[in-house]
Design a protein around this nucleic acid. Structure first.
Ligand code: SF4
Ligand code: SF4
Lengths: 162, 162
DNA sequence: TAATTTTGGACTTTATATATCCACGATGTA
DNA sequence: TACATCGTGGATATATAAAGTCCAAAATTA
């Protein structure tokens, strides 16, 4: 019942991205160095975050990562499930592979399900924005993007440069 | 963030003990067979429950285990901590050995601490009584003991037999 | 004393989390 | 096109923790 190192890495990465004053892409290498995360392991975590639709990745020179949503739209539940898979307190229910002989008659499973539901609700109500605001080094310029801009990125930078 | 097998064993054991109509001692072997738990592993779990003051153990013939408190006085938090140790979401705080470079400046730790506090509160508000009542085979006679009797056990049985 | 049952700890096995590696695919620049 | 940059994907290794086993010692009863 403890936050894994992997999840810690993921949250720190998102904090780092969320704190960027502009939406430029950040190199994985920069994150790894700044956050003291093994680069080759971070690569894996990043992939999971991309796959979950939380961050945005770009190849090649000037490539890197950026948030795909506003910090206030990213919940801890999303981040948790991006790296750990679906949040389940106990495996016996909703799990095809499991085969506990007591499944059909167990008060415990019910109870854990209720706890699970409450925990999920808690995590759904905490956003990356909340986490960043709690950070002691709170940047003056926090990333705030219009929903319309969510998918613009390199293009934006290109236009800005001309 | 999943209930370990060990905790599942512990709760099932307590349900089994709590369902006993009288306060007689139950053999570890009986629990292991009834609950399909490896005997030699269960032995370890029982020790932890004894150590935590949740159950009562007696040596020798007619020995075995029984609840030390009423089901309504045993919370899931107690059971959790009996087998898993103190419930902590994240290690960086309150842990002397830990040495995260960000400890002094991390919004994440704060947040997890809040989640931890909420989760603990939830687990403190669920008792073994609640779990047993949720069980589909709810015994007519549920174990209910006066607080005064908490420590009487074998003596009780002896008197009853004469 | 002998039988019974828990206790304590050392030990092994198995599973999971964490970390590493390298060849490949996508992109930008010249 | 050629080349440098940077993320992707999967295979593999290592470390750590969970789960399970075993046996001799201690406590109790008869
Ligand atoms: S005993 Fe109950 S809670 Fe435990 S695995 Fe079986 S069904 Fe689930
Ligand atoms: S980064 Fe923050 S939450 Fe993570 S271990 Fe360090 S202090 Fe704790």
């Amino acid at each position: 019942m403890i936050i894994s190192k992997t999840l810690d890495y993921a949250v720190r990465t998102l904090i780092y991205l969320g704190k960027q004053p502009s939406r430029r892409s950040i190199l994985m290498k920069e994150i790894a160095e700044n956050q003291k995360i093994p680069l080759s392991y971070l690569a894996k975590v990043m992939r999971q975050l991309v796959k979950a639709g939380i961050i945005f990745s770009e190849f090649g020179p000037n490539g890197g990562y950026s948030l795909k949503k506003m910090p206030s739209e990213i919940t801890l539940k999303q981040v948790y499930e991006a790296v750990e898979g679906e949040l389940k307190m106990i495996e016996c229910f909703d799990t095809p592979g499991s085969s506990c002989v007591f499944t059909s008659c167990c008060g415990q499973a019910d109870i854990w399900h209720e706890v699970e539901a409450k925990l999920i609700k808690i995590l759904e109500n905490i956003t990356l924005q909340d986490v960043i605001e709690r950070d002691c080094i709170y940047p003056e310029k926090v990333l705030t993007i219009n929903k319309q801009n969510t998918l613009i990125n390199k293009q934006e930078r290109k236009n800005a440069n001309t």
